[in-house]
Simulated assay, not measured.
Amino acid sequence: MKERFLPLNIALLLPDHPLLEEDFYLKVGDRFVLLRKKDIPLTPERINRWKEVGVKSIYLRAEARNAYLLHLYNQMEETLRSNAQQEEKAKLIYGVSEFVTERIIEDLSEEVVRLAKDFVGECLKHLREQPDLLHLVIRNMSHDFLNQVHSNNVFFLATGLALFLGMEKSEVEKVSLGALFHDLGKTKLDPQILKKPGRLDPYEWTEVKRHPLWGKELLKSQAKGLPEEVVRMALEHHESKDGTGYPLRLFGEEIHPYSMMVKICDVFEALCGIRPYREALPPFKALLFMKEGMIHKFDRELFKAFVTFLGPEYYNKLLKK
Rank of each mutant, 00 (worst) to 15 (best):
I40M: 05
G166W: 05
K117A: 07
E63H: 00
E63I: 01
H71P: 00
N48T: 11
I104V: 15
R139H: 13
K169Q: 07
E111M: 01
P131V: 06
H71W: 15
L136K: 13
F156K: 04
R114L: 11
N147K: 15
L127D: 04
M76R: 08
L69K: 12
M141H: 05
N152R: 13
R46E: 12
A179I: 05
R65N: 13
E122T: 11
L157H: 15
H150Q: 10
H126G: 00
D39E: 14
R139G: 08
Q148M: 01
L60A: 06
V113E: 11
S57H: 11
L34R: 13
E129G: 02
Q148V: 00
E45C: 03
E63T: 06
A64R: 11
Q85I: 08
F32P: 10
E87W: 01
V96W: 08
G178D: 08
L124P: 04
A84N: 04
C123F: 02
L72F: 09
S109H: 12
Y68L: 09
L72Y: 08
M76G: 07
K169W: 02
L72H: 06
G178Y: 08
K125E: 03
P44R: 08
E111L: 06
V113Y: 03
R61V: 02
W50N: 10
F99R: 01
V53T: 13
D132H: 07
R139E: 12
I47Y: 06
L136I: 00
F145M: 12
S109D: 04
V149D: 11
R49F: 06
A62R: 15
V33T: 12
V149Y: 08
E122F: 04
I138L: 14
A90T: 02
V100I: 14
L161E: 06
Q130K: 13
E122M: 14
L34W: 09
E78R: 10
I93C: 05
L69N: 04
M167T: 00
A116N: 10
L92C: 03
D144F: 02
S151R: 14
R46G: 05
G166F: 02
H150P: 03
T101Q: 15
Q130T: 09
L134M: 04
P41G: 11
A179M: 08
G95V: 04
M167N: 05
V53F: 14
T101S: 15
L60E: 07
N66E: 15
Q85T: 02
I105S: 06
N74Y: 09
L35W: 07
R49A: 12
H143Q: 07
E173L: 06
I93D: 02
R128H: 07
F155C: 06
N152T: 07
Q86T: 09
V33K: 05
I138T: 10
R49C: 01
P44S: 09
K169S: 09
M141W: 00
